[in-house]
Write a protein that binds this DNA or RNA. Sequence first.
DNA 1: GTCGTTGTCTAGAACGTTCTATAGACTGGT
DNA 2: ACCAGTCTATAGAACGTTCTAGACAACGAC
Lengths: 331, 331
Amino acid sequence: MAEAQRRPTLMDVAKAAGVSRALVSIVMRGAPGAAESTRARVLEAARELGYRPDSRARLLRSARTRLLGLSFSTSQPFHAEIVDAAYAGAAERGYEIALSAVASGRPETRAAEALLDMGCEALILISPTLGSEELAGFSRRAPVVSLLRDDVGDDVDSVSSDDHAGIRLAVEHLAALGHRRIAHVDGGEAVSAAQRRVAFRAEMLRRGLEPIVVPGGPTEEDGLRACALLPDNPPSAVVAFNDRTALGVIEGLRTAGLRVPSDVSVVGYDDSQFARLSYVQLTSVSQDAPLLATAAVDRAVDRLAGAEAPAHLVRTPHLVVRNTTAPAPAD
Amino acid sequence: MAEAQRRPTLMDVAKAAGVSRALVSIVMRGAPGAAESTRARVLEAARELGYRPDSRARLLRSARTRLLGLSFSTSQPFHAEIVDAAYAGAAERGYEIALSAVASGRPETRAAEALLDMGCEALILISPTLGSEELAGFSRRAPVVSLLRDDVGDDVDSVSSDDHAGIRLAVEHLAALGHRRIAHVDGGEAVSAAQRRVAFRAEMLRRGLEPIVVPGGPTEEDGLRACALLPDNPPSAVVAFNDRTALGVIEGLRTAGLRVPSDVSVVGYDDSQFARLSYVQLTSVSQDAPLLATAAVDRAVDRLAGAEAPAHLVRTPHLVVRNTTAPAPAD
DNA sequence: GTCGTTGTCTAGAACGTTCTATAGACTGGT
DNA sequence: ACCAGTCTATAGAACGTTCTAGACAACGAC
């Protein structure tokens, strides 16, 4: 159908209810200044006509748009979890979320600019790939919060997960199960791979254990390949860079005739969908998307409220124990 | 920083370039009616001031917003692939995409209404869960295209994938490899499970083969469980409802001591990320997200251009052969 | 009675753009 | 010389909302 039937405006409702445009506006946004009786009458007229406020006009006119811009990447399943939680967090603080995706022919700059053009008061960028100076450029127009990445310069807020703490949790868990020979299949050049590698070394040394670090990468292939590089006398546990890396490692161990977790325990990182799959049930370090999302929203809202300087918030991850870790075999 | 520094408007650029507001507008949107020399001067002034058009005002004023609303679910990784492709498709037809997510506390109605309020000219809803009458309601305001679901009534367009053809491709492939005993682990009550089940039966009978249908479901657990229900004399090939189901089946076969694909071949459906994982390499029927996305965009744009009645488009899926299918064992 | 005070309502400007109508300044053909 | 046509530019209304300022009535306090 979709006839060219003009959608009703404030004016239409005003006429129907026999009041002024301004009063309908007051009623529609629940502002004080209308008698209860007329309020009801206006609301009824609006319902009758099927009136819905036009967000373009509303956004254009009002000083505060109460709109938070959120950019995410279509290629990262983890981002979707954050988007989900961000909606709830924003609603709780009385804000709306405007989405903009980083897609194939659509670079991050474009996504961020679109959000600004829509009238967003602040920007939340999920693991931005932009440089500090570019981010600083955006931050001159609106407060910017970098989510999942913290090396973004001093003009931009950041909310990220404590990699050191995450790795410590993993090692702690394995050590408590009696493991002494623990290897780390690292993330190679991937984002935050260096931090996790350093954290692993530090944590192992702190416990008087020898840190075995094997070069890996962020994908299953990398994990698979890394298995070939494990010492002949294999470790009894592996901390993988990533859940995907962990899956590759598990596959590699399996084909080498080792059983997980009875022979070798494996810990992943991210607690992604993979990890939760019933036939995987991977023990993994969770960055907790909802927690990060609400922290980022809160930070953005606070920046809009007060005038505090940008800060770098770090959230502590937690360990989700499933079925790929078990007590060390009594060798 | 984020000072309260007002962003430059058309008026500012006009003053700087010494022309009228209207002319700057003409230049900014590349419309005819400006001399090349002044065009350059205006553009320079705009660049100088860092002017960016305000999309709220633009959207509010212009008759054609050239905005396509796209709703997707954060919990479906497949939707992300479609979003990605939709951006490219829309850009090609001179349209922009406005996103709205269906998230935890955010039902589909809310997502769709938000898109309408933003001034979208048409709506593309990815596998909508709304009823036909509700969809028809939206279609009175703007053309609506349902993506991935076709039983949406006659007021709404739909673009979906041909389940029958997909199953046929799978069976064809297996038959060509010499398989005669082929089982289908179905999707139980899941969306489009019935269609695929019917298609499998029909296709097997057409070939004079006995259709073995085993009750399953859309997750790995279901696939795993279904393995126990396979006849004692196991089939040499399985067509799973789903990639996830297929993974469960593979796991089940493996633990039963059967090798994939040398003992049993397995075909999945969706060609999801799982399927492409290097250690899985699942042969799967691909619905081809980019194809579906551009088809939906094209359909929406066509509806906006012409006045044709809603149609139900069906795209033919294709088979992606990987490493979980092999010639039938010479029994 | 007059005077704030409070509660309800309204007129009209404003937001930054696009659209419609029109005005001048050139062309070139007669 | 004059008119038609094209090109360039502009003024001002419009889009649908919110905001500012103020009008009007009712009320109680003096």
